[in-house]
Design a binder for these strands. Structure first.
Lengths: 339, 339
DNA sequence: CTAGGTGCAAATAATTTGCAGAGGC
DNA sequence: GCCTCTGCAAATTATTTGCACCTAG
């Protein structure tokens, strides 16, 4: 699992005015080969094993350097000393920390992140970083079962990214499929059909990619969730599809719902895509974000065009949404409550 | 703001087999008179000011004792040393930490807590405690405005508790009012009317209490949110009222919606009521939780009775809910996604 | 009188620093 | 040759401990 793959741009990461050093390289390599969260002392022990003559101070200094260079991240599990984790190819994440075996487990939660952002916004606080740590006892320790070795989180992230992307494509497919049947305007129907087709096409690609990922680790599917995101399990368009089911949804409303879904989906994929260091997961997310952005722009363009067309043909004048269903109302409320 | 009020049951808190000591009492009192998060050293300085002859070691030992006694809580802001905050009359909470001025601001988020619980459950992790810390720059530091002195969180908690309770009563009122008009069964109508009346009655009490609280701190209303809870801003029954608006809602469904709302509300108020040390906020929450529990039981009893009555009179047989609206479906999905 | 409580000084533990010598560019 | 890196030992910081003495119950 530990990839000894070259770290392609370590040199680019290097802060200006520093020199290459075989000792530092050794320390960095030993660190990167290790999984999990090492304390400075753990690393000293490992280093001593490789080269007796490297001193404790150098390890400390290198650790500091690695932090500045963005290779390592200092984490504090409240033990009275720091630990370090890979930062390279590793997004910021949260931790479950077992007080019994001192192991720690990583996870991401888009939901928690949004809430944290909301709290910060409510207090006019500029958040730079947030720490979420759950202390307790892990499954292995409380049941006595063997502690199943965890896959590296890069793979888990890619898996969850793909799962969410696939669910989103599926729900998008359903959404646009339903839209085709619903909308009256021929042009709008054309657009919805086009988008439905695109979703189908992408779905195939994503599923192939997922299969490929599974080949890298046959147990991958059975590993626990790494990236938690409530809205995504059924796809980000599922709520929109529900909304299409309500009666009284006209073409413009259908567009608006679509726009809302695409925007949510774009934001989500962009957030994680940007955060993750270069990797498969990042790749999927960024491609996806881009695609959703295109859809989003298309929908907005078409929405405006339709509004204009309807106005020109003397259709009922529609400035603001005339009617908001339960979904819309619930959202407005949630927004108000977050303050 | 710093209440010099007697700490009524310090003696009861004292671990068994310990002696009274004037030095320890002094340290405890100095600590409790202080707001905010003190480091051991901050406290030593304060103590030295009061009595030169108290040693650093004693302060450390007393801090340790206070933690065991549940008076103080150790918090780690990643500075490489611990700080201590009041635990007495102070619920567990989360922190916003300003890296510029080193001040820290407290908040509670029911929403984050639920998500944390869900993540832990998904990993079969027994959570004992969780830490949420948002690092960044506070409003005062980024705008250069005067740092508005914060009210103590006991008062803020009470305020938010009351706000949520009031919003819940209001929405409950609306819910049961609508229910009265909706349900067909005369007995059910009677029950809904009774509950509506009770909500009105309670609302008056709560509002009076809120006014009283405002008298304790005229600026209280303008202070920032302490307890974040999305669902609550419009009252925990608002979603239920929306659901009543759907067509095809029969008496049983109305009961079920009421039960769901009361249960949610009961859980929320119980969770925070129990967590908070003896205080006004705790008081409101526990009374409220109790009241909701009674309503809940009443509704369940009546629901069952109605099912039986309908079955006996040969009404359409209703075992499981025959129809779930958008709300129900959305909930089921959320539940599935949380895994 | 005796189990804690306390002061003092020394110990520990994690991490940093001063300084002189070594090594990459 | 210059500037950075490194080792070593000493310093620093936060916290704990051993031990003799003190004090409340």
């Amino acid at each position: 699992m530990a990839s000894t793959a070259a770290i392609p741009d370590l040199d680019r990461l290097r802060p200006a005015g520093t020199k290459r050093s075989s000792k530092r390289d050794l320390i960095v390599n030993v660190f990167l080969k290790q999984e999990g969260h090492l304390s400075a002392d753990d690393l000293v022990v490992l280093i001593k094993r490789a080269d007796q003559r490297i001193s404790r101070a150098t390890v400390y200094r290198t650790l500091q350097w690695m932090e500045e260079a963005g290779i390592a991240r200092k984490v504090d599990f409240g033990e009275g000393r720091f630990r370090f984790e890979h930062s390279y190819r590793h997004p910021r994440h949260f931790h479950l920390i077992c007080k019994t075996c001192n192991r720690s487990y990583e996870f991401l939660s888009s939901d928690i992140e949004s809430l944290v952002e909301e709290v910060a916004a409510a207090r006019a606080f500029t958040a730079r970083q947030s720490v979420v740590q759950i202390y307790g006892t892990c499954d292995a320790c409380s049941t006595g079962h063997a502690p199943e070795e965890s896959s590296n989180s890069e793979l888990l992230f890619a898996r969850d990214a793909l799962r969410i992307a696939i669910a989103t494509e599926r729900s998008g497919m359903e959404f646009y499929g339903r839209g085709v049947k619903l909308v009256k305007d021929p042009r709008a129907r054309e657009i919805f059909r086009k988008l439905a087709t695109e979703e189908v096409h992408h779905l195939t690609t994503l599923e192939a990619r997922y299969e490929e990922l599974l080949r890298q680790d046959p147990l991958l599917e059975s590993r626990p969730t790494f990236l938690f995101f409530k809205g995504a399990a059924n796809g980000l368009f599922a709520a929109g599809t529900d909304q299409l089911r309500r009666d009284g949804v006209d073409d413009l409303e259908a567009y608006r719902i679509g726009i809302r879904c695409e925007r949510g989906s774009h934001r989500f994929f962009k957030r994680y895509g940007e955060r993750f260091e270069d990797s498969e997961g990042k790749q999927v997310f960024l491609e996806f974000a881009e695609e959703e952005r295109e859809h989003l722009e298309l929908l907005i363009r078409e929405y405006r065009a339709l509004v204009k067309r309807q106005r020109d043909t003397g259709h009922k004048p529609l400035g603001a949404p005339k009617r908001q269903g339960a979904g819309g109302r619930a959202k407005a409320r949630a927004r108000a409550a977050s303050r």
